[in-house]
Design a protein around this nucleic acid. Structure first.
Lengths: 209, 209
DNA sequence: GATCTCCAAATTATAGATAATTTTCAGAAT
DNA sequence: ATTCTGAAAATTATCTATAATTTGGAGATC
């Protein structure tokens, strides 16, 4: 819960800002002023600027040379774009991960899915959903690919938090189950196909679930 | 040729360092020391640090919290990984770009391809190759996707420059031609399939063409 | 009343200085 | 000779100060 003691200030700031952006505490398009943020964190603006660069790399903010930094907007088009990228990359990761998936991993993924279905708020569901995907994709052993997927997933999460918020109920995740079933019987194509559809569906309901 | 006058120092430094890394002037694994680089550019280390963050985002350097920054290595595995990511993303981009491709664009791509075949050094060939891909993919209208592809292409280029160097001759690019032919007759699937194979081939010859 | 000009305030970008951490290496102990 | 120990040197991370640029708006002009 508490920040890992010996982390750099810049990374602490970037994590905190990322969370605020994803959860909608800071709205899309809002301008981020380095001095104000530095004040708030009791730091100087130098680490704040570095945090900005990281957020920029993740696609959470956009920065114009001498005109400052603002939270990246997310139009329907952008959401779809991210969803399609995720679909393409997650399918790639799954194909490479499949040969290394063990019974134990699939069981863990099933547990994560179950946790998601029992989640009482968006945060918990998101957490479980993330775990599920990470569990079945990590064994691909492609760190750069996994990093990209992770960044895209973070951006996707903005949609999740913007759409609902208060009233929310966990959907029974048929897709996840179908993916697991297919993987258990070694039908990678089927699993990949469901995964692709699943990821794109997530990016399809910008107003209504 | 001269640096765009009113660019920020940080971005000038990051561009310059990126070029050195890609062309192999700075070797993989080499440590980058902020003060030394700052001295060399006649700047302070603050913009150097920001440049580091950008290079990190592009995957050209890796940074460990208080232990500095070093040029990212590129093992065979990493090269393959990047190639596969490129293949997946370029195919996605092509599928979205295809409906917007005009005769004029395809002609321009053909010209770029021709320029590549006549290129006398690696640099020129790389430039032409980049143009070709950019021309046929840009019309997809997905800026984030294009940015990702661009970053991956930069990383791929390291391989190119490391492998050859002095003696080098431009290959007649059958794949590019095949892609254009397929696109001209509207066979997107065929074009996508050749493109995927093509991109992965590039990442396949780490020692020998 | 609307638009333009120019100055003040706010903000970004860079420099220079300082604190904290890691690396290096000489010398002691085994 | 090899492995520890510890202090000096190098390096990273941060802070404070300054320069340069942009933003916002008051007052003048049409």
């Amino acid at each position: 819960m508490t920040t890992a003691k010996s982390d750099t200030i810049a990374s602490r700031i970037s994590r905190e800002l990322a969370e605020r952006i994803v959860t909608g505490v800071i709205a899309a398009g809002a301008r981020l002023r380095q001095d104000h943020i530095a004040d708030e964190f009791g730091a100087s603006h130098v680490p704040v600027r570095e945090a900005f660069r990281r957020l920029e790399a993740q696609g959470l903010v956009v920065s114009e040379p001498r005109r400052g930094v603002r939270v990246a907007g997310f139009s329907l088009d952008e959401v779809k774009e991210v969803a399609e990228m995720r679909a393409a990359l997650e399918v790639l990761a799954l194909r490479h991960a499949a040969p290394h998936l063990t019974r134990a991993i699939l069981d863990a993924a099933e547990a994560a899915n179950f946790a998601g279905e029992k989640a009482s708020d968006v945060q918990a569901w998101d957490e479980a959903n993330r775990s599920f995907h990470r569990l079945i994709l990590s064994p691909c052993g492609m760190p750069r690919l996994l990093k990209s997927i992770d960044d895209l997933q973070v951006v996707s999460a903005r949609l999740l938090f913007s759409g609902w918020r208060a009233e929310w109920e966990a959907p029974t995740d048929r897709d996840h189950r179908a993916i697991l079933s297919a993987l258990r019987v070694g039908d990678v194509d089927q699993a990949a196909s469901v995964l692709a559809r699943h990821v794109q569906w997530v990016g399809q309901s910008p107003r209504k679930g």
